[in-house]
Design a protein around this nucleic acid. Structure first.
Lengths: 230, 230
DNA sequence: CGTCATTTTGAAGACTGTCAACGCGCGTGG
DNA sequence: CCACGCGCGTTGACAGTCTTCAAAATGACG
C-alpha cells in the first residue's frame, strides 16, 4: 500500500491547508474539502486491503469513488464489520498509533490518502484543525454507539430496516439506491447470518415495504412500516 | 444538578491547569490528575441522575468514589447501558453540544464536575490539552468498538465472561472484586436478559470457573476456561 | 452455454427470551 | 425479637427467533 502510494506520488497536490483562504473568490471550503489538497489519489481494486488491523495508522483516507468496509476478525473466523464508507466519507483516522480495524475496498475504488503527520502537525498550531480531528472521532463514536444499541437490543427485522434506512439517507435519491456490499457484508455489519439477512429482505418485499429491483438495488416503498418491529 | 453544583461552589479549587508545573517537587502530574484542580466535588445518591440524554454537555465528570452507569432508553422501554465508570474514570466528555447518553450513580457516589468550557478554552491555546481531549474520545471509541463485537458476534457465555474479565482487570485484586451494579444493569450492558445473566453466572459457578461469594462479590477461579465459548 | 460466486429457500435444532414462581437478605414495624 | 414486606436474584418450563446445514435458484462472465 505505502509502496504504491509513493509510486504514484507524482499525483501529489502541493497546495497547503488554508481553511479561510479564499482569495480566488471561490466559496469558503470546509476542513474536509481542504483535505483534498493534501492527499494522494490511490486506486484500490475490489476486495483489496487498504490497511490491516493493528498496522501503523500513518494515513487518513477519503473515498473519492467506490466504497469501503472496515472490519475486525476474531480468532475463530467470526467477523464484525465496523462501518461502510461511501464517496465523500473519511475513514482510517486514529488518535492512537495503530488502526483498530482493517479496511478493504468493496468495489473498485479510488481513495485519497492523506499523511496523518500532516494533520497532527497542523493541529499543533491550529486549534481549528485540532478541534476538527476531535469532532471526526466523536462522530465515529456517535455512529458506533447507535450501532451498539442496534446490536444489543434489536430484532433481525429492526437491524435490517435500520441498515436500509441508513443507506437510503446516505444516497442521492433517499428512496432508491444501490448496495455495493454483499449479503455477507451486511450480515457481518448487523450481527446476523447471511441467511437471516436474505430472509428478512424477502419478507419485507412480500409485505411491500421494499422492492428489490435487483439483489443489489433497493427501493423503499414504506418507510413507516419498515420502522415497526415486525 | 447544575443548581446544586453552584450551591457547593465554595468547594471549588482555584489552581490553574499546569501539566508541567512541578515546582513543589511532586512527581509530574498527567492531564487527568490536573483535572482535579479544576473541579467541584459533587455527591450523588444511588440512582440519582447526573445528566440526562440530549442535555447540554457543560460539564465533564470524574468518579472520585462510588460508580456510574450511562445508558440510552428506547421508546419502548428497552435500555442499553453504554458503560460503567469506577473511581478514577472520566465520563461525560462530548465533542458536540449535548450528551448522547444519560448518566446515573449506581451506588452513593462522589464525582468531580469540571466545566467543559474550561477545557475547550485551554485547548484553544494548548495543543497538548487538545490532543488529550481527542485521545479521551478515542479511548471511548475503542471500548465501544470492542463492545460492538461482543454484542454482534458473541454468545451469552462469552459476553458475561468478557464482562467479568473486564471488571476483574479494573479492580485492585484482579481476581476477587465487587460488582456495584445489579443483574439488570449487567444484562442491559451485554444485550441479554436478567435471567440469562443469572443463569450464566450459575453455570460458571457449577463449572468452578467463578465463585460467587455473594451475588455482588465474585472471584475468578479459572480465567482460561472463562474465555472458552461454552 | 457452462461455470462459479452469490443469493434465496427449506427443514431442523440450539440458544435465548418470556412468563411464572420461589428464595434470599434486609430493613421496618409490631 | 420476630414477622412481614420489598427489592433483588435464582430457577424452571416453554415458546420463539435466529442459526445451522443443505440444496436449489439466480446472475455475472468467459
Amino acid at each position: 500500500m505505502l509502496a504504491y502510494a509513493q509510486h504514484v506520488s507524482e499525483e501529489r497536490y502541493t497546495a497547503r491547508f488554508a481553511p479561510a483562504a479564499k482569495a480566488d473568490g471561490q466559496p469558503e471550503r470546509g476542513f474536509e474539502s481542504s483535505l483534498e489538497l493534501m492527499g494522494i489519489k490511490l486506486p484500490v481494486a475490489r476486495n483489496e486491503e487498504i490497511y490491516g488491523q493493528d498496522e501503523p495508522a500513518d494515513y487518513v483516507y477519503k473515498v473519492l469513488k467506490g466504497s469501503v468496509r472496515t472490519h475486525k476478525l476474531l480468532d475463530d473466523g467470526r467477523r464484525q464489520v465496523g462501518a461502510f464508507y461511501l464517496p465523500g466519507d473519511i475513514f482510517g483516522l486514529e488518535a492512537g498509533l495503530n488502526h483498530r480495524f482493517s479496511a478493504e475496498a468493496i468495489s473498485d475504488t479510488v481513495v485519497l490518502a492523506i499523511k496523518r503527520s500532516t494533520l497532527t502537525a497542523l493541529a499543533q498550531t491550529d486549534a481549528v484543525v485540532a478541534r476538527e480531528l476531535w469532532l471526526m472521532t466523536a462522530r465515529e463514536l456517535d455512529h458506533v454507539q447507535d450501532q451498539m444499541i442496534l446490536l444489543g437490543r434489536s430484532s433481525a427485522k429492526e437491524r435490517v430496516a435500520s441498515f436500509l434506512i441508513e443507506m437510503a439517507d446516505r444516497s442521492k435519491d433517499r428512496t432508491e439506491f444501490d448496495l455495493p456490499m454483499s449479503r455477507q457484508d451486511i450480515a457481518d455489519y448487523l450481527g446476523l447470518t447471511i441467511e437471516t439477512v436474505s430472509r428478512t429482505f424477502s419478507s419485507m418485499e412480500r409485505k411491500a415495504q421494499i422492492e428489490l429491483l435487483t439483489s443489489r438495488k433497493v427501493r423503499l416503498r414504506n418507510r413507516a412500516a419498515l420502522r415497526c418491529p415486525h
